[in-house]
């Protein structure tokens, strides 16, 4: 008597399921591309519609060089663009050193244990906190300083930059930690075995090796900061500002805040203005991402060579 066969290879379904899965993945990928094309198309169409007579480029130029106005023909984003660039600079200065520093400490210095796990868990949780909550925090902490008038920064660029800095800090910490973890332990050991101090190992080997990953994370985080509207509304980005910020203690407005303000105007001609603002914001984001790619490639090449 022959024993019953244990193997029942379902060859047909196996062969069919592979391509089906591949196709599903392809659909998932193209859905992103399709959505992006629709978004760009819609925005560009709105801009073209909103710029009768003139070309879209002329309209963008006009939007970049004029302040806010109740007249859609005159309205623009000059103050918001300047405010967003200021915020970008301030956030870069606050969040990158602190975030990268915290990640280096957690990965390279902190002894493993309960305390490190608790800190780690909290950072991961902070990364998921809604941005409006950071806005309330920024309002209480930076704008009003819990009622201590001397310490309060008021609704200035300082307060906005610090709030956005706090918002993206956990993202930078986590991205940097991920990048540091990809640096092989053998590299650290090789350097330590030559009599290098921990700081020398981190400075000359770990950070340069992790730099492409760190830069990617940092640029993604900065892009998020640039696009945030809700926390800036909380910490007092102004609705109507008719001059450029003179320094970090000036009042300000930001590009997404202005887009929001224009978009809720009842006059339909403002829709074209808002769409133009979105194009400007997208252009800013794409420039940042392109810069990141260039820097990353340069780093990757120099660490190989």
């Amino acid at each position: 008597m022959t024993p019953p066969t244990v193997y029942e290879p379902e060859r047909w379904s196996r062969r069919a399921l592979g391509p089906i899965f591949g196709l599903a993945c392809l659909v998932a990928t193209s859905s992103g591309v399709v959505v992006l094309s629709i978004l760009l198309g819609a925005v560009v169409a709105a801009v073209v519609k909103g710029s009768p007579g003139g070309s879209a480029f002329a309209m963008l130029r006009h939007l970049m060089s004029s302040f806010q106005s109740v007249d859609p023909e005159l309205a623009g984003f000059k103050a918001g663009l300047a405010g967003s660039l200021w915020l970008l600079g301030l956030v870069t200065v606050f969040a990158i050193p602190v975030g990268v520093g915290a990640a280096v400490f957690l990965e390279e210095y902190a002894p493993p244990g309960r305390l490190r796990r608790i800190v780690q868990l909290n950072i991961a949780n902070l990364a998921g906190v809604p941005s409006i909550v950071y806005g309330i925090l920024g309002l209480a902490l930076f704008v009003r300083a819990f009622g201590m008038k001397r310490m309060a920064l008021g609704p200035t660029l300082w307060a906005g930059g610090l709030t956005l800095g706090l918002l993206i800090l956990p993202v930078i910490v986590i991205a940097t930690q991920e990048a540091l973890r990809t640096v092989p332990g053998s590299l650290r050991q090789a350097a330590m075995a030559l009599g290098a101090s921990r700081w020398q190992v981190v400075r000359d080997h770990v950070l340069p090796s992790a730099m492409p990953g760190i830069l990617t994370g940092v640029i993604l985080a900065l892009s998020r900061a640039i696009g945030e509207t809700a926390p800036l509304l909380m910490v007092g980005a102004a609705g109507a500002i008719l001059r450029l910020p003179r320094g970090p203690s000036s009042r300000y407005t930001a590009l997404p805040v202005e887009i929001y303000n224009y978009a809720k105007e009842p006059d339909p001609r403002f829709q074209g203005v808002a769409a133009g603002g979105i194009l400007l914001l997208l252009a800013l984001l794409l420039t940042m991402n392109a810069t990141a790619i260039v820097i990353r490639n340069r780093y990757a090449r120099s660490s190989r060579g």
């Binding site: 092989p184 590299l187 050991q189 075995a193 090796s209 190989r304």
Partner: peptide
């Protein structure tokens, strides 16, 4: 000094 099992030169010149 120490030499390791798997050659681990630095990713430098």
């Amino acid at each position: 000094g120490m030499v390791f099992q798997k050659p681990n030169p630095f990713p430098k010149s």
